[in-house]
Design a protein around this nucleic acid. Structure first.
Length: 686
RNA sequence: GCCUGGGUAGCUCAGUCGGCAGAGCGACGCACUCGUAAUGCGUAGGUCAGGAGUUCGAUUCUCCUCCCAGGCUCCA
């Protein structure tokens, strides 16, 4: 007898269902498989529980478990199960927030009596979670007033704080919704706040367990199961280092065991590529503890790779009109007083050393002031501009002990740093050619999947004229668009001294790295009183562009190492070919081949036949050499080599030595020196 | 900087409830002379991260320092 209601499907079609139909029932009417895959329903653009009755005229879309939204629901629901398991095992535990995150979820806890989780606890917790899943507990939504909420969670101090915050927000109705706090913890808490404005919602799994939450959730815990707890970590309440430090448990959850297994496999793959691990295995670099945290030494093989990277960069910079400069590693404090670094970057600097009767000297954290002094060393004319000063400049930054990480976050590094000084008219063209140059060069190193991020003027602050900001920002934007790359706007995210564009690269397994930055600076020229004499015979202030392509050589080395999983392309490989004589008496011929290759500029070595061929091949493969050349009786007779190329199915036999030299010589050359013109620049010019 | 967990041979890791330190791989030596991802035998290799304390005795227990990992905070 209930009248029908009409639902609007995503494709615009209408569907009549009985009044009071829930999302779950609606999904069931469309199909059993859809009902099984459903975890939530979007109603008029908002995610909602499947158990909610639908209203007339609702625009609905079933959210299935194998979509990002669906996984988010699964992960969030799994986080609740985690919290329940912890409260079962540790009665009296407080739980704070537990959102879904990329690939998984976490929940923050405080255990009674200052207890803490250990790794073995994760197994116990996971076992308890599986019990809760097996119990098929429903997720029941409850709506409460703030007063009821305070009573309901009276033993949960963190929940009380969230509710109190929500009540306060609700009270000041017009409070701006734009909290731009970026930390995950805060935004997770903020989401709870915003939906709680009219009271609070909670989800109850059992008599004992209820959690403050906006939802939606899966109908029952038995819809969960493809999860794994990953690790325990510390985290500050609300991301504030002055507040309580809670215990955070991270987990991952997926729509199926298969998807979970695939994720775990991806993690293993990433671990296999970890540059710290490869650095040891391939004997590239190390971090001797005698030197100190975050300070790397490059071994000979790493040195070859690094030198090849740097040499190529130098050669391209030379072509692009840069001039090379060299500056010292330490300086009197005066320089950084003028630049302002001591005002706003002192924490990131090593403490000063006191010399010459009280004079303070600092290790440099940046190269820019030095390059400015080179500019200022004599009077400059507009005819000289643009001036492009390049340096592989070593800088030292006092990174806090907890942030040092492999080669990607170090305390001593070498920046491929350049500063370009231009006048207003040149600025736009210079930025355009610069971005083209940056992307070309990165492509030559084998990265080719980029997106750009443009950071614009922070509201209410900023040195330089509006016109300068506008021109520079527009130039950056135009170039970004003309590169046919995705452009992400970071509105108002620029530094006060100028707009910035950064190049983000995706590596071979899809991770993104922030690499190059191009930063306009309207401030330092002013602080240093930089000038040039213009065509009008007046003095003018140049505009300064800071730019680093690699970021730091160390970091870029680490990125490339992971991108290639240690298998560097031939031109970067520490050893490009190894000659293996099959038997002792092939040794002299092997040496002849080695010498021919070495004479052609190839980095080649050989390994005598002290062992069977198999193990020697294996060793060379583990070292990820591009080419293994096997020489035996046939080759000695025919003046050939057997070529076992990295990545090829089967070795080639009977390749003439001269033919092989021709072939590898091209590959071994840097991209701009190849006969086949393989460089990105050459490709673009064709 | 904070939280938690670590540091044992070049690498990966056992082990020691406080009583002479172990394996595999690698290195080195000898034998094998071999056609595309692990030949055999043998040898060497350790201040159990460093320092202090407790103890008859400390790699093991306690404290401090250094270094590493995963997070949090930070990344101008």
């Amino acid at each position: 007898m209930a009248a029908d209601i009409t639902l609007i499907l995503p494709d615009g079609t209408m569907r009549q269902v009985a009044a009071g139909t829930t999302g779950a029932e609606f999904a069931g009417q469309i199909g059993r498989r859809l009902a099984e895959a459903a975890v939530a329903i979007e109603v008029d653009g908002e995610l909602s529980d499947l158990g909610q009755p639908l209203h007339d005229g609702a625009k609905v879309r079933i959210v299935t478990r194998d979509t990002e939204e669906g996984r988010g629901v699964l992960r969030h629901s799994t986080a609740h199960v985690l919290a329940q398991a912890v409260t079962r095992l540790w009665p009296g535990a407080s739980f704070a927030i537990g959102p879904a995150i990329t690939d998984g979820f976490y929940y923050d806890f405080e255990l009674p009596g200052g207890a803490h989780f250990s790794d073995s606890d994760l197994e116990r917790i996971e076992a308890t979670m599986r019990e809760i899943v097996a119990e098929a507990q429903p997720f029941v939504r409850e709506e409460h007033s703030f007063e009821e909420g305070l009573e309901l969670f009276k033993d949960q101090p963190y929940k009380l704080e969230i509710i109190a915050g929500a009540a306060a927000t609700a009270a000041s109705t017009s409070s701006a919704s734009g909290d731009t706090d970026a930390s995950a913890a805060d935004s997770a808490a903020a989401e709870l706040l915003s939906v709680a404005a009219a009271g609070i919602s909670a989800y109850r799994n059992s008599e004992q367990f209820v959690d403050l939450c906006r939802g939606p959730h899966v109908p029952s815990t038995d819809r969960l199961g493809s999860f794994k707890l990953m690790r325990v970590a510390g985290a500050y309440w609300r991301g504030d280092e002055k507040r309580e430090q809670l215990q955070r448990i991270y987990g991952t959850a997926w729509e199926s065991d298969k998807a979970l297994a695939a994720h775990l496999h991806r993690l293993e793959e990433a671990e296999r590529r970890d540059h710290r691990k490869l650095g040891v295995e391939l004997d590239l670099f190390s971090f001797p503890s005698e030197i100190g945290s975050g300070l790397a030494v490059f071994h000979p093989k790493g040195g070859i790779v690094r030198k090849a990277m740097e040499d190529y960069s130098r050669s391209r910079h030379e072509e692009a009109g840069y001039e090379f400069v060299y500056t010292p590693h330490i300086t009197k404090s005066e320089l950084f007083e003028i630049s302002g670094h001591l005002d706003w970057f002192a924490e990131g600097m090593f403490p000063p050393m006191e010399l010459d009767g009280g004079q303070q000297y600092y290790l440099k954290p940046m190269n820019c002031p030095f390059h400015i002094l080179i500019f200022k060393s004599r009077q400059r004319s507009y005819r000289e501009l643009p001036i492009r000063l390049f340096e592989f400049g070593s800088v030292y930054r006092y990174e806090k002990s907890g942030v040092v990480h492999g080669l990607t976050r170090v305390r001593g590094m070498t920046m491929d740093d350049a500063h370009i000084f231009v006048d207003r008219e040149q600025m736009v063209d210079e930025l355009k050619s610069l971005l083209v140059f940056v992307l070309d060069l990165l492509r030559d190193y084998g990265l080719d999947d980029f997106y750009l991020e443009l950071s614009t003027k922070p509201p209410g602050k900023g040195v330089g004229t509006d016109e300068e900001w506008h021109d520079a920002t527009e130039a950056l934007r135009q170039v970004a668009l003309s590169m046919d790359l995705e452009l992400v706007l970071d509105e108002g995210g620029g530094a006060f001294y100028g707009p910035k564009i950064s190049v983000q690269a995706r590596d071979a397994i899809g991770r993104t790295w922030q690499l190059s930055t191009v930063q306009l600076d309207f401030q330092l020229p002013q602080r240093f009183g930089m000038e040039y004499v213009g065509a009008d015979n007046e003095r003018h202030r140049p505009i300064m562009i800071h730019r680093a392509l690699f970021g730091s050589v160390e970091r870029f080395f680490g990125v490339l190492l992971e991108h290639y999983a240690g298998a560097f392309p031939t031109w970067l490989a520490p050893v490009q070919a190894r000659v293996l004589p099959v038997r002792d008496d092939h040794g002299p011929y092997a040496e002849e081949v080695r010498s021919a290759l070495a004479g052609a500029g190839i980095r080649v070595d050989s390994e005598a036949a002290n062992e069977p061929l198999g193990p020697r091949i294996r060793r060379a493969k583990l070292e990820k050499l591009p080419y293994i050349l096997v020489v035996g009786d046939d080759d000695v007779n025919a003046r050939t080599v057997g070529v076992n190329a990295r990545g090829s199915e089967r070795p080639e036999r009977g390749v003439g030595v001269a033919d092989f030299v021709e072939r590898i010589r091209d590959e071994a050359a840097p991209p701009n020196a190849r006969a086949s013109a393989g460089g990105a620049q050459a490709r673009r010019e064709r």
